[in-house]
């Protein structure tokens, strides 16, 4: 026989931690990313001041923003894929391909440029769709699938543009990466807004649900396969936009210029506090992660580190960020 019923049923009260404690605890990755970004900006500004006798001005800010745009966009795409507990190594290939397409097909009237840009974004989406379909329908490891498609997209890019070249109209460059001011921040604002909308949509909930626990999400009625396919597709579209920004920056195309973005987008995602095991993270974090990555390069430049060692230091910072982020996360959870 059961033990007697407590007249009060379930407890009438329970411990409520202050709202701020929840917000801090649940966004510790983002908070850390913002802090690191702030510190890296301070360090950079300090080095700049020492060596140039002035603080970085409009020119430095504008070029930093413009240089970071492709990475920030690629990192947002990578975030959406990583949230579903996936990973996308084909980022570099998609950027190569869309960058090459842009350099060849963009020149023309304004209307022409708009249509071509849209088509290039669609092409990126198709590339992502291929990834998503193979991962989703084939139930294959994302890391293997996207490693294979990375090579395929790189190959296609070389076919499209065997030699660096082509051209991007000046008007197009000025529109995306205005050199006289950091207007590209507007596009980042738009991206952040898009993220906030996504976060509040059914798809957003599904992305997080699938990354949290796929079988559980399926039991809750989430269409996991569809969600993953969409994640890779949206990712591909964002890499395409990154490819367009890269072309605008360089005012031309190069079928290998995107290769680095496979690694750096993952670095930015980790620095931005997005959990590689899925289900936790934000695009705002990824944007911060992208800027941190750029600031690290800037700092290395001012520290007169041989550019050949750049990836060595990037890797080092990645390891530190992963270890440190994990430690902080654990401490916060213990303290709660």
């Amino acid at each position: 026989m059961p033990m007697p019923r407590d007249p009060a049923d379930l407890p009438k009260h329970g411990r409520r931690r202050p709202r701020a404690a929840h917000i801090v605890g649940q966004n510790i990755g983002l908070i850390l990313a913002v802090t690191i970004l702030f510190l890296s900006i301070v360090i950079f500004a300090g080095m700049f001041l020492v060596q140039q006798d002035r603080l970085p001005g409009s020119f430095e800010i504008t070029s930093t923003v413009n240089n970071t745009m492709p990475l920030a966009l690629a990192a947002i795409g990578q975030t959406i894929v990583v949230l579903t507990r996936g990973i996308d190594l084909s980022v570099g290939g998609v950027i190569d391909l869309t960058n090459a397409l842009a350099a060849i097909f963009l020149p023309g009237s304004v209307l022409h440029m708009i249509i071509v840009s849209i088509l290039i974004i669609v092409a990126g989406g198709l590339a992502g769709l291929v990834n998503g379909l193979i991962v989703g329908l084939g139930r294959l490891q994302p890391i293997v699938v996207t490693l294979a498609t990375l090579s395929i997209f790189q190959g296609l890019a070389i076919r499209v543009l065997p030699q660096p070249g082509g051209s991007v109209p000046t008007g197009y460059t000025e529109f995306l990466v205005n050199t006289s001011g950091p207007t590209a921040l507007l596009f980042l604002g738009l991206a952040a807004l898009g993220w906030m909308v996504l976060r509040r949509s059914r798809l957003g909930v599904d992305l997080f649900a699938v990354g949290n626990d796929e079988p559980a999400a399926i039991a809750l009625g989430v269409r996991a396969m569809r969600t993953k396919i969409l994640a890779y597709t949206i990712g591909g579209m964002l890499y395409a936009v990154a490819g367009l920004f890269l072309a605008a920056n360089a005012t031309g195309g190069d079928a290998t210029t995107g290769d680095d973005y496979t690694l750096t987008s993952i670095v930015a995602v980790v620095l931005g506090g997005v959990n590689l095991f899925g289900g936790r993270g934000s695009a705002v974090g990824a944007i911060c992660g992208a800027f941190i990555t750029t600031m690290i390069v800037n700092i290395l430049f001012f520290a007169h580190i041989n550019p050949l060692y750049q990836s060595f230091y990037e890797g080092l910072f990645l390891v530190i960020a992963v270890v440190f982020g994990g430690l902080i996360g654990r401490l916060v959870r213990r303290g709660s």
Binding site: V205, D213, G221, N275
Partner: peptide
């Protein structure tokens, strides 16, 4: 086997699929 999503809040888990929404359908 429980089907709660570990890194989502109790509220998100409880109300998944029937969250309070803005007029345009975005989740509040």
């Amino acid at each position: 086997e429980l089907t709660l999503l570990p890194w989502m809040s109790v509220a998100e888990n409880l109300l998944i699929g029937r969250e309070p929404r803005f007029p345009l359908g975005l989740i509040r």
